[in-house]
């Protein structure tokens, strides 16, 4: 067992240094495209780090949202920037970053050192062995309706937080739509191989999403992970030129965007009237309420992430092309 512990420590050290190195390269790389690729790599290694910290829920979310969908968003933003900026000659690194002024560099360094120092102080001042709230959660787990403590906290004990998170997602797509307008995918790549790949992968992705949603009741998984995989399936479909919805007109997509937050608010109101407290479910029905909320939240999260991708992707590109 001693040898195994040593190997694990070596692996953790390597992982930590790799993350640090990747973050460094990502920030100081002259080429934005390289930075994005490094960011995606960073997200994947970060997911492994979360697994090593025994937080598989966070690892799943990091892999799907942090590395996957954020990577896709950054790539589409990069493509848009490249199209807008036609003056660059080929051969140069695309979109070279402006050099920092010397004073700005020192100011940035000062704040970074202060922030790092503060964080280090906060971490070091924590008690070294604190159970946190896990005892309180485990003692109440039977009344939550699920057997996975993370889901119990997110959807029952601290359901209020998740309600606000859903509201933030809704706000984000509203602001993207008001800034960029709504439009359908512009650049479309089709090839027979991509078509077969998507035909095979889309049903699998939907199945995996449903599995993660269902398994969240007793194991790592849940609405955010399931929703982001659903969103990824949508991104694949949009990229291959199968517009799922006409985003400009469809009321269906608006309904899907608000389904999660609306269900949360409705249930919060209902429990406030019946139980006298926000999102305090009666124990007998807690499992059903959580499943209902998670299902609708999955649909809303998936649609929001897809709409963010589509919404950020196109309008400016199309305008730019029409000018030429």
């Amino acid at each position: 067992m001693e040898a195994v512990g040593l190997w694990q420590s070596a692996f953790d050290l390597m992982l930590g240094f790799s993350l640090f190195g990747l973050a460094w390269r990502m920030l100081f790389c002259a080429d934005l495209f390289k930075s994005i690729v490094l960011f995606i790599t960073f997200g994947l290694l970060m997911a492994i780090a979360w697994v090593r910290l025994e937080a598989p829920d966070v690892a799943l979310a990091e892999a799907t949202i942090g590395a996957g969908l954020t990577g896709a968003l950054l790539m589409s933003a990069f493509a848009k920037l490249r199209t807008l900026d036609n003056s660059l000659k080929s051969g140069q690194p695309l979109l070279p970053r402006p050099r920092l002024h010397v004073i700005n560099f020192w100011i940035a360094l000062l704040f970074t050192v202060l922030l790092t120092g503060g964080l280090a102080y906060a971490v070091l001042s924590l008690p070294s062995h604190s159970p946190g709230l896990s005892d309180a959660v485990m003692s109440q787990l039977d009344s939550s309706g699920v057997t996975h403590p993370v889901t119990a906290v997110l959807l029952n004990f601290r359901g209020y937080d998740t309600l606000l998170e859903m509201a933030v997602l809704l706000l984000s797509i509203q602001s993207v739509w008001s800034m960029a307008g709504m439009s359908d995918a512009g650049e479309v790549h089709t090839s027979p191989v991509l078509n077969v790949l998507i035909q095979l992968l889309s049903p699998v992705l939907i199945l995996v999403s449903a599995y993660l949603l269902w398994v969240g009741a007793h194991a790592p998984g849940g609405a955010f992970q399931a929703g982001s995989i659903l969103g990824a399936a949508g991104v694949l479909l949009v990229l291959s030129g199968r517009p799922l919805f006409n985003l400009k007109k469809s009321w269906l997509i608006r309904l899907m965007l608000v389904a999660g937050p609306a269900a949360f608010i409705a249930l919060a109101t209902l429990t406030l009237i019946n139980e006298g407290q926000l999102l305090k479910y009666p124990v007998a029905n807690a499992a059903n309420y959580i499943l209902l909320l998670e299902t609708l939240a999955t649909v809303s999260i998936g649609t929001t992430l897809l709409a963010l991708f589509v919404g950020s992707q196109t309008e400016a590109v199309q305008q730019d092309q029409s000018h030429q």
């Binding site: 790549h189 191989v193 991509l194 790949l197 095979l200």
Partner: peptide, 16 residues
């Protein structure tokens, strides 16, 4: 199997 599928498809797309 999923990695086989994605790997084969994506490497074709990159090469293409």
């Amino acid at each position: 199997l999923l990695v086989l599928l994605a790997g084969a498809g994506v490497s074709y797309l990159i090469a293409n």
